[in-house]
């Protein structure tokens, strides 16, 4: 079976400026593939390359085994796209707009649009210019799904959706993959990708950092603990504690990664004067910090 998406040495420069560099990955049918990276990492660039909106500097990119440049129309007819920066025809109503999209996709009426709009509780008759950000995003989602595409390319899809709508969106994604269809979803929020995706690629400054199953990623999850001390503790104060890694030190502030029980760390902290203590589940930044730290200590 051929991969739904296959990128090989995919590179895109905008003139001198870096878009993505030497990307290689595969996405299989029936999975939600999370494409995770901070702003400017190259997520939008990658998705726009798939739709032939921009052209690669080098490398190969195939969707459904089809060349995205030479067979672009065939690729696009099987793909639904939600842009990260959504711009719609302001004067049209959602119904008029969705009918236009459906017509250009060769469908009668709105395709699945009517049913989807009902599910998302999207009002179809008010002009798009009068809609809130969340409602516009719903229009964007409905137009991406209305032709029952084999592949969905969703660029930061949950931006602007309220929690209830996100719930509907999650259900929709699950249905899609249950039917053997495929979702490629970009995000800059680690927890979101962990919630939605089966596999994750992490991209940073245009390059892939890692590709792995969400379970594997989750197993690496940790709590970020940031402690501010009266006087900085000695360098080795937290070395060797089970489940504890030191990530960063800025004067009296020490950032630690904690996995498993908090008890050994608490007892170790108690030996010093702690002025402030903050802890939360690691986000993408923390994750990069840990990744980078680990890379360094592995090299040593």
């Amino acid at each position: 079976m051929t991969a739904v998406i296959r990128a090989e040495s995919l590179t895109k420069f905008y003139g001198e400026s870096r878009g993505v560099v030497d990307l290689g990955f595969e996405v299989e049918a029936g999975e939600v593939f999370g494409f995770l990276g901070p702003n400017g990492a190259g997520k939008t660039t990658t998705i726009r390359l798939m739709l032939d909106l921009i052209r690669p500097s080098s490398g190969r990119l195939k969707l459904f085994g089809l060349d995205v440049r030479k067979q672009s129309v065939a690729v696009r007819s099987r793909t639904g796209y939600l842009p990260g920066d959504l711009h719609l025809y302001e004067r049209l109503t959602p119904r008029e707009y969705l009918r236009y999209v459906a017509a250009l996709r060769g469908l009668d009426g709105l395709g699945d649009g009517e049913a989807l709009a009902e599910r998302f509780e999207l009002e179809l008759e008010r002009p798009i210019r009068a809609l809130s950000k969340g409602n516009r995003q719903k229009v964007g989602l409905v137009q991406a799904f209305l032709h029952h595409p084999d592949l969905l390319l969703l660029d930061e899809p949950t931006a602007g959706l309220d929690p209830l709508v996100q719930q509907t969106f999650n259900e929709l994604l699950r249905e899609v993959v249950t039917e053997g269809r495929t979702v490629f979803l970009s995000s800059h929020i680690l927890s979101e990708v962990q919630r939605l995706a089966d596999r994750v690629a992490i991209i940073r400054e245009g390059s892939l950092e890692l590709v792995e199953a969400v379970e594997t990623l989750r197993a690496r999850a940790f709590v970020r603990v940031e402690a501010t001390f009266g006087t900085p503790p000695p360098q080795e104060a937290f070395a060797g504690l089970p489940g504890v890694r030191e990530l960063e030190r800025r004067g009296p502030v020490v950032v630690l990664a904690l996995e498993g029980s908090a008890d050994p760390l608490i007892k170790a902290l108690a030996r010093y004067e702690v002025l402030a203590l903050d802890s939360h589940e690691a986000d993408l930044e923390d994750f990069f910090l840990a990744l980078y730290r680990k890379g360094k200590s592995d090299a040593e």
């Binding site: 726009r48 739709l51 032939d52 909106l53 129309v73 696009r76 250009l104 996709r105």
Partner: peptide, 9 residues
């Protein structure tokens, strides 16, 4: 962008 994401060359 959205227009040319549709199957229109």
């Amino acid at each position: 962008d959205l227009l040319l994401s549709l199957p229109v060359s």
